[in-house]
């Protein structure tokens, strides 16, 4: 797969390699991609809720 390269600390990389194998991921890339997707989804979710709350503040239902 083509894409940007990301630098991470060697000790973290060793852990990532070890645990991606234990968790059954087929590659380090697959594990890292999955972890990042999960984290981004969480942040997106929080941002969406915040946007809704802002709208409800404008409507006078939340202060």
């Amino acid at each position: 797969m083509f894409g940007a390269k990301i630098r991470i600390e060697r000790t973290l990389l060793e852990k990532v390699k070890r645990y991606s194998k234990i968790a059954g991921y087929s590659s380090v890339e697959e594990f890292v991609t999955h972890a990042l997707e999960k984290e981004v989804a969480k942040l997106e979710d929080a941002a969406s809720e915040e946007e809704i709350k802002e709208r409800l503040k404008g409507l006078g239902y939340i202060s």
Partner: peptide, 20 residues
């Protein structure tokens, strides 16, 4: 209420509400 309304964002808001 004098708040800003952007009809262009209606579809986006609908998606956010559905998810919520």
């Amino acid at each position: 209420r004098g708040e800003k309304v952007d009809p262009a964002s209606d579809e986006r808001m609908r998606g956010l509400f559905e998810k919520h």
